[in-house]
Nucleic acid binder design. Structure first.
Lengths: 187, 187
DNA sequence: GTCTATATTATGATAGAC
DNA sequence: GTCTATCATAATATAGAC
């Protein structure tokens, strides 16, 4: 892997684990096995490198979510697939965690990929809920954009619960609760 | 207000806004209007002060949540009251945000109040859902502990959505979605 | 492209005067 | 209790040799 590649990957790891504020250029260089001068040759500085890392992480999240969304099955089945897909629960969401980073939120550039990714996720989920509505899958009086927000929030908040409890079980409980509420019923 | 009080309050503000990693002793001293020596006279250091601040914040969150839980009304109404109560949405949850702080998670002492608070919240909500179940309020096949986790996750994740979007509307959407799914229906 | 100074400011704290 | 040194280390670079 080229040096810029290694620097970006190292930054992605560290941003995920420690956030932007908690990640130093020195730590990035060590994780990447690159020297000081090398890093500043390829990138203008920490914000520049972080931007590259965040953009790539955002792209990956999109791609991996779309894999759940684009599959076969009813809307409920695809929502279920998304909610139950394997996750590194205790590490949290590499994009969502950035919303708690003051320096990311303060920078228009760094925040933009985060905003876009979460917006896209909500929009895509709303489409799926709409498909379910059209197919008469849901019994409750459902507003697609609202359910989409609930789904994303349950996932993002699930990470918080899991990290607070020190166990992925809390995440799973939240997801099961939501699925129970969403499940088509034949009364 | 006494100097230790001012230091604790300043730390609470900064932990909320910037997290533990992003908060320096110097920033605390300035916000509190206290000198270096003064801070180290009253507290052993940053972790000690942070512990006092986190404990107080956790207590306040409990008290304020209990105000919603202990009120009048059906289980659904009390859940609704909790979910719709006024919040400083764009600031996020002062307890939940600490779960994304690597140094807080790494310290047993600092993590304990966070764990206990979230655990308590889930337990308390599960009790309310159970009351609703007993009263026949819910139509879906509901597991109290799961719904409780879903409720807490929706709130915690709602903060993430709102901060990502830069608007509290995203939080509200998630909450409305959840309430629609929970709402008692007479088919 | 990479490496080794060098520089500036912040971090997190201790020591001792007042 | 508070204040002013003082300190060692880390953060975030820049400069220039190789």
């Amino acid at each position: 892997m080229s040096t810029p590649e290694r620097l970006i990957e190292a930054t992605r790891e560290l941003l995920w684990e420690r956030g932007y504020v908690g990640t130093s250029p020195k730590a990035i260089q060590q994780q990447a096995g690159a020297g000081q001068g090398s890093m500043y040759h390829h990138f203008a500085g920490k914000p520049d490198l972080a931007l590259a890392a965040i953009r790539r992480t955002a792209e990956e999240l999109r791609a991996s979510a779309e894999a759940s969304f684009g599959g076969e099955g009813t809307a409920y089945e695809r929502l279920r697939g998304y909610l139950l897909r394997e996750r590194d629960v205790l590490r949290g969401c590499p994009v969502g965690r950035l919303t708690m980073d003051p320096d990311v939120i303060a920078s228009e550039e760094l925040r933009a990929p985060v905003t876009e990714t979460i917006d896209w996720l909500r929009g895509r989920l709303a489409e799926i809920v709409q498909e379910g509505l059209d197919a008469g899958e849901f019994s409750a009086p459902v507003v697609p954009e609202e359910i989409a927000a609930t789904v994303v929030a349950t996932v993002q908040g699930g990470y918080v619960l899991a990290r607070a409890a020190g166990s992925p079980a809390a995440f799973d409980a939240g997801v099961r609760g939501l699925l129970a509420l969403l499940a088509p019923r034949n009364p």
